[in-house]
């Protein structure tokens, strides 16, 4: 019995680790502490980062903050939130500006600058890795979950919800793709 327990402990990770994502690899969505928004759906989050949502419920302008072009954190966020690569997102933002949108995303160089920007701008929304959160900003629940919760949708290295098929199949057709993770 002892030998089996030792073997299981050695081979298999703890059950908790199996059921929840590594919180340090999750992207936390952060807003200013004065922002009344506490939760967003994945669809709302996507619309905000695609500049389709211009205002928060309190009337403040939504200001999207991204890491600099070429940084891994930016690539991760664009893929997880928008389902886009860098070139496609750049083209999309140009097109939005051309359509009359006058509030393009801002860029910052580091997680520290991201937190500082969000701290100073009440309408800002950005992201950091879960282990980079501090008390100067507030973390928003995405689809009702926080980083570290089971089913949190923004985990680095995991395909976006749309790519996994969680959107189209269960919600529209009541089906689940083989191998797709149920949220």
């Amino acid at each position: 019995m002892v030998a089996v327990a030792i073997a299981l402990a050695t081979v298999a990770p703890p059950l908790g680790a199996q059921s929840g994502p590594d919180p340090t690899r999750a992207l936390a969505i952060i807003v200013n502490r004065a922002n009344p928004v506490e939760r967003l759906s994945s669809a709302d989050l996507r619309r905000a980062f695609l500049l389709q949502r211009q205002r928060w419920p309190d009337g403040r302008k939504v200001t999207v903050v991204l890491r600099e072009e070429g940084q891994a954190e930016r690539t991760e966020a664009l893929a997880l939130i928008c389902g886009m690569g860098e070139a496609e997102y750049a083209r999309y933002v140009r097109q939005e500006i051309f359509r009359g949108n006058v509030n393009p995303p801002r860029t910052v160089r580091s997680a520290e600058n991201m937190r500082l920007f969000v701290f100073n701008a009440p309408g800002a929304i950005g992201y950091v890795h879960a282990d980079e959160i501090d008390s100067t900003v507030r973390v928003v629940r995405v689809d009702g979950r926080l980083p570290g919760d089971v089913g949190y949708p923004l985990v680095v290295g995991r395909p976006s919800r749309a790519r996994r098929g969680d959107w189209l199949f269960p919600r529209v057709f009541g089906l689940q793709r083989p191998g797709a993770e149920r949220p």
């Binding site: 200013n32 403040r60 302008k61 200001t63 991204l66 600099e68 072009e69 140009r94 500006i97 051309f98 006058v102 509030n103 393009p104 995303p105 801002r106 860029t107 910052v108 160089r109 600058n113 500082l116 920007f117 701290f119 100073n120 701008a121 009440p122 309408g123 800002a124």
Partner: peptide
């Protein structure tokens, strides 16, 4: 000072340029 959505003072140092004034020319 946190009373509006102006870019963070550090934003102008960013190479991305998104912190530039919002007169957009294309």
């Amino acid at each position: 000072d946190g009373t509006d959505d102006s870019p963070h003072p550090l934003a102008h140092l960013d190479a991305g340029g998104d912190g530039a004034p919002r007169l957009l020319v294309q």
